[in-house]
Design a protein around this nucleic acid. Structure first.
Lengths: 179, 179
DNA sequence: CGATGCATGTAAGCTGTTACATGATTGC
DNA sequence: GCAATCATGTAACAGCTTACATGCATCG
């Protein structure tokens, strides 16, 4: 089994934390994540889980007590090995530098806008980011440190990075209004 | 013309800054970017540029002074409009929250590792991030503020976020060794 | 004259998105 | 009884990656 993709790893990780759980639950967790990078559409999650099952990383068992025909997922020992391998691969140089930020990408090409559009863009982006920061902060308060330490630390990272982005955008705005 | 994808927008932006330039140059700029999120493989860039040309956003002209048959790209007026639309779309809520960080994703599932593996993972990740931060800093010094202000501000953002990620990971490491 | 860099592209395959489609359960 | 939520999936399509393939130019 070759190394898992980002989405595969995240899904496997969610299952390992929530097991036994349904594919539906995995999708909802994905939607609730601090990053909306993955949209977790049915069309990606269900085939993905089928792949993981075919590879022997998760086991699907039909829940007989449920008329809806829902299937409960658990991680196999082989799946646990794959998961830890996937986590460890995160220390690779290429993965570390592969964060993508659509706002930052666009900043490079801000000269495609006129002065007024630029101001509007920055104002709107900053206020959206402030809202997003608040949402991230309240998530952090909801999940207590004692219950899910790594979930807490992950969300803490999301908050820290969002703060940094906000600080930076305020610098950009100030830098541009000064001219 | 519907809204441009991330990669399409970035490529169009690069051309608008470097024009007239070749597709090869676009690829190299992409590779040199502070984020390695896009690998800028030939198989994605060339078809993408063909799409942009078909949509009338860029113009391709064969350079007659070159035996290699290289083609020079320029952005059309229609392309400039598309570019500014793409930049402005970056203020949308969904795009703002769609930053993906492979390291942070994995932090959520760090309980899949044992204590020793966790320490190793964090140590390796932190030292890789330190190296990456230095590379980002030296890029910032290379491109002077006066020459390409927005390129400078974009790289500044990359640096600030990298610093925040590093700070956060040090907190995580400390938090875990304390137990 | 050989290696490296410039320069362009294609083909197969995998993954993800959008939109569609269905049905059971629960709470009001 | 009806709406919202739980729950699972498929089909068509678009996009990106890997690997392959070619050829000119320049420097040592």
């Amino acid at each position: 089994m070759k190394i898992l993709s980002e989405l595969e790893g995240v899904c496997l990780g969610i299952i390992s934390k929530q097991q036994p759980c349904t594919a539906y639950k995995v999708r909802n967790d994905l939607k609730a994540a601090p990053s909306s990078h993955w949209q977790a559409s049915a069309g990606s999650v269900y085939p993905l889980l089928a792949r993981l099952e075919a590879a022997g990383l998760v086991a699907m068992s039909s829940d007989k007590c449920d008329g809806r025909g829902r299937k409960l997922l658990t991680v196999t020992p082989k799946g646990r090995k794959s998961l830890s391998k996937w986590v460890l691969a995160g220390a690779d140089e290429t993965l570390i530098s592969s964060v993508s930020d659509p706002v930052r990408s666009r900043t490079f090409f801000l000269d495609a806008l006129n002065a007024k559009q630029r101001r509007d863009f920055l104002d709107r982006t900053i206020s959206e980011l402030e809202r997003f920061l608040q949402a991230t902060e309240s998530r952090l308060e909801e999940v207590p440190e004692s219950e899910d330490l790594f979930g807490y630390l992950g969300s803490l990272g999301a908050m820290k990075v969002t703060e940094a982005r906000l600080d930076w955008l305020r610098v950009v705005r100030e830098r541009l209004t000064r001219t």
